[in-house]
Write a protein that binds this DNA or RNA. Structure first.
Length: 250
DNA sequence: GCCAACGTTGGC
DNA sequence: GCCAACGTTGGC
């Protein structure tokens, strides 16, 4: 049951029931630990059950589990930029179309949506590390042309993903209890389209080249952890991807 | 549609 | 706690 990619609850494009209050719920105390230990361990390339299953982490939470579980062990300064995957083409999952493209995001009220359906502990921990105002690339996956389509920003920090409790939802998780939710989501708002679509293939060719030259994309998570649906980018990675907008497609 | 990569589950 | 079997992700 790993479902790292965003799925809209119910029909895509329609209101999803979590837009109403979010823009006005501005959490205080924004400047806390920025990075989870999992992040650090994760990036080191180790892979163990404990690290990936986040269950241990879930136990180590303080009074604000949705936001702080991942930040218990702070490393430092790893990331305030993100990449989030979503499928822009129709695909049925338990009879529900999980399509959600950047155009769909633009069409939402306030161009904002809750990023529900993430069912992978590592991805969830990254969601919980996200801070208000941070920027994320909207990545189109599992489609004709995978790649980075645009930019969005975090407008509400992690809170419980209501779809985990909805039996009819494709991402229903019977093992999660209302008084101790397992899964989190954030709200994101459309910022802009990329000036041009940045295809995965192009990113990959830079990644390959940079592995040899030590360039900015040499360790990009998109390639080192190909299945992770929510991933951090370093400042250098983020800036480099943005710089590609100005270049000719390669 | 294929299948490599890789996360999760559960028996032991 | 190990690890084989299984299921999913997602590029191609």
């Amino acid at each position: 049951m790993s479902r790292p990619r965003k799925r809209l609850a119910g029909t895509s494009g329609s209101g999803n029931g979590c837009d109403a209050q979010r823009l006005f719920a501005i959490p205080g105390g924004v400047l806390k630990n920025r990075n989870p230990l999992v992040t650090d361990k994760g990036l080191s390339g180790k892979r163990t059950k404990t690290e990936n299953s986040g269950e241990a982490l879930a136990e180590v939470e303080d009074s604000n589990p949705q936001k702080t579980s991942a930040t218990k062990n702070c490393v430092k300064n790893l990331s305030s930029h993100w990449l989030m995957k979503s499928e822009p083409e129709s695909r049925l999952e338990k009879g529900v179309d999980v399509k959600f493209s950047i155009e769909d995001l633009k069409a939402q009220p306030k161009q904002t949506t809750c990023w529900d359906g993430v069912r992978n502990y590592q991805a969830r921990n990254f969601l919980r590390a996200m801070k208000l105002g941070e920027e994320a690339f909207f990545y189109h996956s599992n489609c004709k042309e995978p790649g980075i389509a645009g930019l969005m920003k975090i407008v509400k920090e992690a809170y419980p993903d209501h779809t985990q409790f909805e039996k009819s939802n494709p991402h229903y998780d019977p093992s999660s209890k209302e008084d101790n939710p397992k899964w989190s989501m954030v709200d994101v708002q459309f910022v802009r389209m990329m000036k041009r679509f940045i295809p995965l293939a192009e990113l990959k060719s830079y990644h390959q080249a940079h592995k040899a030259t030590g360039g900015p994309l040499k360790n990009m998570t998109l390639f080192s952890r190909q299945r992770l649906s929510i991933q951090p980018l370093t400042q250098e990675e983020f800036d480099f991807v943005l710089s590609l907008e100005e270049k000719e497609p390669s």
